[in-house]
Nucleic acid binder design. Structure first.
Length: 424
RNA sequence: GGAGAGAUGGCAGAGUGGUUGAAUGCGGCGGUCUUGAAAACCGUUGUACCUUAACAGGUACCGGGGGUUCGAAUCCCUCUCUCUCCGCCA
């Protein structure tokens, strides 16, 4: 959520940013917010004055009762009652204004960082880095869903039987590979000073709102109606919400957390080759990294996180590229996002395996995650997160890129975790 | 799931209708003392919002929401959570 103060103080900058994010009717929203906020302030001032009058009267009445001047006290009561009626009116109006203001404010996406390229869609993203050689496979190379079937390690049909499409069953070395990747990713994160968190995978509405999934992506989360809980689409939600309504001490920053969780996404509206095999699942495994940092450090930190994710891909010997998303392709809450894409050689496409974002104060403003700076002033922190990494597409690329006559070669760095060198 | 008890400031813990944003203790910060530190003593110590150029003033917040009252941390309703006992259970 954007800060109202920024909208009022630097309307032009906000408008420029919203346009870069391709928000329609930005002027209309901004105008509305400014007007609503003015009205809001007026009403608060009026309400406060009346409340003050009531408080003064109440004290007088109390004093009169104490000094046994009951009749005089009784005479003051009607005034107070009348004031209260007026206050109630103003408060009702104020509530309406505040709801309207909030509802509009929540529609505004975060402003993109100045370095974000202008553009409307994925084609206009900027490739900032590419690593590794694109493997050239023989003509009979298989896509990962066929390899999964060939070696009996992932069963998509069985998932359909148990649950539905997008819920694969991993078996034997396939299951072990999952476990190996999770542990590898967590261990690497710990080496880089992240504190491991194992959070709940169901969260309440406040948490969904805190990280921006609600109300924006309501339809993308599984919802347990009976208990009013959401299945998390990413560990970002519970982990970042740890810091909801928290005022951190200066020396507690930066907060570096990582966590492995299952992630659940309804992916309503997806279809075709996009969802084939492991490309897009309803349930998948992911290790997430989250940082809460001082505002002035967040753009250094995002580079550090990007490098860290790149290092994982290098260790796994996967060719990848780093893409800086353009304004129109960025997520609602982000100010700067790098996508990391691995090349999946049989499908001959780049698969997004990580998204590293700086949210600046967009999340922390909702979360009320603040810190006291050296001067004792309370300021909003900046929040960042990134996948490090999401498993399915890594597995897809590993299977496809490493296929050989004998079987599928496990990258050396994973062998200590899998206990085997080949899937055959 | 059933019965009972409870939820107060960073923590502990008073307060059951009238200057109570809230006693007291601990902790934190500043100071005196000290070569330095500790102890002791003195002072200070929440968040958000509104008005103001500023000084300053005002409002709200004692788990959340609603109500009674001129006035609520205090009374009533409701929800959530915690604890104890019973039941069930990995």
């Amino acid at each position: 959520m954007l800060q109202i103060q920024l909208i009022i103080e630097d309307k032009e900058r906000v408008l420029r940013g919203l346009k870069k994010k391709r928000l329609k009717d930005a002027e209309k929203y901004i105008q509305e917010i400014i007007e609503l906020d003015q009205k809001r302030k007026q009403l608060i001032t009026q309400s406060n004055e009346i409340k003050n009058n009531i408080n003064v009267l109440s004290k007088q009445i109390g004093d009169l009762f104490k000094s046994e001047k009951k009749e005089e006290a009784e005479k003051l009561k009607p005034t107070s009652i009348e004031l209260k009626g007026r206050e109630a009116q103003i408060d009702t109006e104020l509530k309406h204004i505040e709801t309207a203001l909030h509802n509009t404010l929540v529609l505004l996406p975060n402003l993109p960082h100045s370095s974000v390229p202008d553009g409307a869609c994925a084609e206009e993203n900027e490739i900032v880095f590419q690593y590794g050689n694109i493997p050239v496979l023989s003509s009979d190379a298989l896509c990962h869903w066929d390899l999964a079937d060939k070696y009996g390690i992932i069963n998509f049909e069985l998932g359909v039987k148990l649950t539905g499409a997008g819920f694969p069953v991993y078996r034997g070395k396939g299951a072990k590979l999952q476990r190996a990747l999770i542990n590898f990713f967590l261990d690497e994160a710990l080496k880089n000073d992240y504190i491991e968190i194992e959070p709940p995978v169901l969260v309440n509405e406040d948490s969904g709102f805190g990280t921006g999934q609600l109300p924006d992506k309501d339809g993308q989360m599984y919802y347990v109606e009976k208990d009013q809980l959401y299945l998390i689409p990413t560990a970002e939600v519970p982990i970042t919400n740890i810091y909801r309504d928290v005022i951190l001490k200066e020396n507690e920053l930066p907060v570096k957390n990582c966590g492995y969780t299952l992630c659940f996404r309804r992916e309503a509206g997806s279809y075709g080759k996009e969802v084939r095999g492991l490309n897009r699942l309803h349930q998948f495994d992911k290790v997430e990294i989250v940082q809460i940092v001082r505002p002035e450090e967040s753009y250094e930190v995002i580079e550090e996180m990007r490098e860290y994710v790149a290092s994982l891909l290098k260790m796994l010997e996967l060719p990848f590229r780093t893409v800086k998303l353009c304004g129109g392709d960025m997520s609602f809450a982000s100010a700067l996002t790098y996508d990391m894409e691995v090349y999946s050689a049989a499908q001959k496409r780049w698969l997004e395996v990580s998204s590293v974002s700086n949210f600046e104060t967009f999340q922390t403003n909702r979360l009320k995650c603040r810190f006291k700076d050296k001067n004792g002033k309370t300021l909003l922190t900046h929040s960042l997160n990134g996948s490090a990494l999401a498993l399915p597409r890594i597995v897809a690329a590993l299977l496809e890129n490493n296929q050989a006559e004998r079987g599928i070669k496990i990258p050396p760095v994973l062998v200590p975790y899998t206990g085997f060198e080949w899937i055959d």
